[in-house]
Design a protein around this nucleic acid. Structure first.
Length: 211
DNA sequence: ACATTAAGTGATT
DNA sequence: AATCACTTAATGT
């Protein structure tokens, strides 16, 4: 039986029948900040729909480090999951709950089954591919063409937006790992930003002063 | 008080 | 920009 609390609303799926199916086949899962949601190399059996919170997706490197790729935010699903489910291959990325996060998980067969049946679902899947592909391309040219200071600012902005208080909760080491640079480089850049009043630093805390 | 972890910085490559 | 070496500051036990 389902609880009194109505399952989260996904306005992008207007068809009542689809809403009903979401309710019927979906299962709510909660993760606390830091929980591993998907390990790289493991097979994916479920399709996640982010209800609240966010997931941090990164690409593990050979040497055990990771390069941050993107966040999954409410209303989104994971394109990588679609790919993996359709091709029946293990995940190539790693997902960790960035904050406390609620996800609606669906059995993977729904990807195929709902595509021809529900226009909004089909649109959702395709749009998801489109968006993620664009974002990945952006990440690539970010890495190859942008200077570290720009990358750092972009990173802080994104993380700031996701944080309820607009403050990035992370150590310099953690940021350095995400951006694949040395911790010292991050420390020095942040210090510089602080001198210019662009940022307020505290231990494990960075608040960006935009505008 | 002591140990551990985070951050700041100069020097070297 | 990476690495090393070292210092200083904040936090945990």
């Amino acid at each position: 039986m389902q609880q009194a609390t109505p399952l989260p609303h996904f306005p992008q799926f207007p068809e009542p029948e689809l809403q009903r199916e979401l309710r019927e086949h979906g299962q709510l899962r909660r993760f606390r900040a830091g929980d591993i949601v998907q390990e790289a190399g493991r097979y994916v059996r479920m399709v996640p729909l982010i209800v609240s919170g966010s997931l941090k997706v990164s690409r593990p490197a050979e040497d055990g480090s990771e390069l941050f790729l993107y966040y999954l935010e409410p209303g989104e699903s994971c394109t990588m999951t679609f790919s993996c489910c359709l091709a029946d291959r293990p995940s190539e990325v790693h997902a960790v709950a960035e904050s406390d996060t609620t996800i609606l998980v669906l059995p993977r067969r729904v990807i195929d089954e709902w595509m021809p049946r529900y226009r909004s679902w089909r649109n959702f899947v395709l749009t998801s591919y489109d968006r993620r592909l664009r974002e990945l391309v952006r990440t690539i040219d970010d890495v190859s063409f942008h200077q570290l200071d720009d990358r750092l600012l972009g990173y802080l902005r994104k993380r700031g937006q996701l944080s309820p208080d607009g403050t990035v909760h992370a150590s310099h080491r953690e940021i350095a790992e995400d951006l694949h640079v040395s911790r010292e480089a991050v420390s020095r850049l942040l210090k510089g930003l602080e001198r210019h009043g662009r940022v307020i630093l505290a231990r494990n805390r960075i608040s960006l002063r935009e505008l």
